[in-house]
Nucleic acid binder design. Sequence first.
DNA 1: TTGATCTACAACCATTTGGTTGCACGTTAG
DNA 2: CTAACGTGCAACCAAATGGTTGTAGATCAA
Lengths: 116, 116
Amino acid sequence: MVVDQLTSTEADRIFHALADATRRDILVQTGPGSEQSVSALARRYPISVTAVQKHVGVLQDAGLVTKARRGREQIVRIDTQALHTARLLLDQLEGLWRARMAQFGQVLGEQTKGDL
Amino acid sequence: MVVDQLTSTEADRIFHALADATRRDILVQTGPGSEQSVSALARRYPISVTAVQKHVGVLQDAGLVTKARRGREQIVRIDTQALHTARLLLDQLEGLWRARMAQFGQVLGEQTKGDL
DNA sequence: TTGATCTACAACCATTTGGTTGCACGTTAG
DNA sequence: CTAACGTGCAACCAAATGGTTGTAGATCAA
């Protein structure tokens, strides 16, 4: 398995999507039980509706949210699966390091133990 | 508590740093027991040394690696702590969603206030 | 029907990103 | 000492980002 390095375009998109405070907040706001329309989201931020549309588009390309039309509204809902994927990528990195540490028999003072 | 909100500039930097395949690979290559110089890293990729320097700089700004001079070389070493922080951020997001699901059927009309 | 909403999309703009080359400077090897 | 190596930095460039305004098409409320 390891890290996909080359075909990591998905990882690129996921991490890039998470690298913006507004987008991370959209993920929070559209969590389970509080799906919202694009315009409803836009009212929360000091930016234009179009800007929010673009943010949602980025999240969508990363697979972090889905859009579903409801009348004239477009409801944004998160896809928890993709975020899980993101965490798996981080776990893989840490896993690699731990494996390498084990090989070298090195001991670090910290317990980055798998609390997941 | 919860998401670091405004201090999220750190989150911005961490996720942005992770949003590039070359940088993620640098993290893998400089893992525990295999610290490498910038030029040694540069030989691994089809890009210039300067480009690698910049990538390392981005990782450094995110707190993901540290540089230590050794003679004429600059040794890049990972800081596992920062990556742990990144995973915590993801955990917080998932945690928020779970909390929200727990409040199912509750009052949905108001702002979840607090974040951003 | 009419008007207000919500979304979509094009065009535009400033800034950032990721890359390059060239040059200077300290360090190490012969 | 001299030459090669590793790094730092400035200047430059193309493309991507994140934002804007404007226009247009659906859909809903009255």
